[in-house]
Nucleic acid binder design. Structure first.
Lengths: 325, 325
DNA sequence: TTGAAAGCGCTAACAC
DNA sequence: GTGTTAGCGCTTTCAA
């Protein structure tokens, strides 16, 4: 910067003003031009770190995730957060903790040392968490997870609306006897999707039939194993807890010579691309809005959007219609 | 830091020395203890940015990716890079460019302004790239891609070895007539895996039979469509260009009433978890080492490991045996 | 064994 | 309009 000033024959203050296009700074056309030329000539690049130090406020946002890689989903959260942060001139600092508390504290400490504007704490599946102590030392928003007592702003998928939507799609295709293969794992997804399923049935004037909900491991194996129970139930459509379960069910159904959707309709959840878009027939499902979760997290953190006064911010799970209904 | 010094009754220089555990610094036990107490009392945290400014050397590594989210794979690269960077006291700055050149330049500029130690430029599938001009302004290593003329250090999966390994596994199960469903997309994967397939056959004394390699779209649909050709070929085993192709082939085979692996063995490539580990039977495949790619990229960047004098650094694709052979 | 002081690159009052 | 200068929080000679 000094060099630029020297070449342009001005002071560093002037350089700073033109480089940052300062609002209230009156700079002569000539001086401005000379500075710009010098910048170009020298290939000058401002030092963002020095700027931060001097202004006392950084453009970093930290993202600490419990599992960047285990699932395709985490990547989408990063992606959404990154895009949104970028849009507002912020930069993402990422750290993976593998769910390990020590790594977590270290990661948070490191972000604090780098003067992050705030931290996004994310998990790869929607759940309640214990808030790490260290998070209280800066602004934090929880992404795809939430804390008891709503002590921190959080943004999570609207599981209930998702379950409702999924069921409604089946209802819209005139199904009345709709089975639901739910996960055996206690989670907001388990209760939320079930509540949505019941709400949709109720709204359609269909009585909830407990014997139509089947517990299963939330994977291909679970869906496959549920096949005969589904068949016995005489359901004409089945809403699966997730796409993987639906994939397993496809296999089971096929073995019994059943056609989808002619003989039985199938609805998934998650919109896991590698699966849903490529099963035969392609799978209708409800999308988990991971990208939006990341983006909304950043917006809350930057105060661009107000957090709901009570409870986490809910992001809608939109239906993705393909050919299994 | 000044506050700590004041409370401990020493100078900031002394605080700096004890906080950083400086080697050649003689600090009295008493002073050291007082500083440590003051640090604890104040909850003092060093400002990493100020440190960088003063030392002139940062602990940032930039990762620019063309697609963080499109695929589960990109996440693994980030994960590997992050873990390795972390291990050496570095922090990852990530940017997504969606393959857009403008975003790319902006991302690189931003990283440069943040004084990154170097940049990891990664793509989500192995290919040759045009090196963005801006990358030459700092140390760069290419991850999962490479540049013509080997102008930049690069680290990529060893496609040929992967193809060889896959074929060898089939050979080891006593198959002699092995079909290969290759992608129609020109790429290092296309040529490398084919070369590996041929090499393995040659080593086993089996003549290469052109009519045993089938072109197909690298997705479920391609594998499914190739079914009848595979059946006509009388092959007893098939090596699929990737797991998605294998998944499609599973469907096709099942429709023809064939059992895997009793009637025909199937080998995949990629080790895409959501698929490979959960097909029935589970799919034997070869893993694309994305995590390792990211980690090795960081090692090359930090000079912890020498780059090969010619060509990219090859990372092995290990076999993952399950139940389809 | 410890401290004073210069300087890292930049911003922001304020003076001219 | 433009320049001077005092920091921002830290490291690092060098002197004491």
């Amino acid at each position: 910067m000094r060099d630029v000033a020297k070449i342009a024959g001005v002071s560093v203050a002037t350089v700073s003003h033109v480089v940052n296009d300062k609002a209230g700074a009156r700079i002569g056309d000539d001086a401005r031009r000379r500075v710009q030329e010098a910048v170009a000539e020298l290939g000058y690049r401002p030092n963002a770190l020095a700027k931060t130090l001097s202004q006392g406020t950084s453009r970093f946002i930290g993202l600490v995730a419990d599992a960047i890689a285990t699932t395709p989903f985490a990547g989408q959260i990063i992606h959404g957060a990154q895009d949104e942060a970028w849009k507002h001139g912020y930069v993402l600092l990422v750290a993976n903790t593998d769910g390990n508390a020590a790594a977590e504290n270290e990661a948070i400490a490191m972000m604090l040392e780098h003067q992050v504007h705030g931290i996004l704490y994310s998990t790869w599946y929607h759940r309640e968490i214990q808030v790490p102590e260290a998070l209280h030392q800066t602004d934090t928003v929880l992404v795809d997870c939430f804390a008891a007592g709503n002590v921190l702003p959080a943004v999570v998928p609207d599981e209930e609306q998702g379950g409702r939507t999924a069921t409604e799609e089946l209802l819209a295709a005139s199904h009345r006897r709709i089975a639901f293969i739910n996960t055996t794992t206690p989670s907001p997804a388990q209760t939320g999707r079930l509540a949505g399923y019941r709400a949709a049935l109720a709204a359609a004037g269909i009585e909830f039939d407990e014997s139509l909900v089947f517990p299963a491991a939330p994977e291909q194996e679970g869906g496959y194993a549920a096949t005969s129970a589904i068949l016995d139930s005489k359901a004409t459509a089945v809403f699966c807890h997730n796409d993987r379960v639906a994939m397993g069910l496809y296999d089971g159904l096929r073995e019994h010579g059943l056609r989808i959707p002619e003989d039985i309709a199938v609805m998934g959840f998650d919109n896991q691309d590698v699966i849903a878009a490529h099963l035969r027939p392609t799978l209708s499902t409800v999308a988990l809005p991971h990208y939006e979760l990341g983006a909304a997290g950043v917006r809350l953190l930057l105060g661009l959007e107000p957090a709901p006064e009570s409870g986490p911010k809910l992001i809608a799970c939109p239906p993705v219609l393909r050919h299994s209904i």
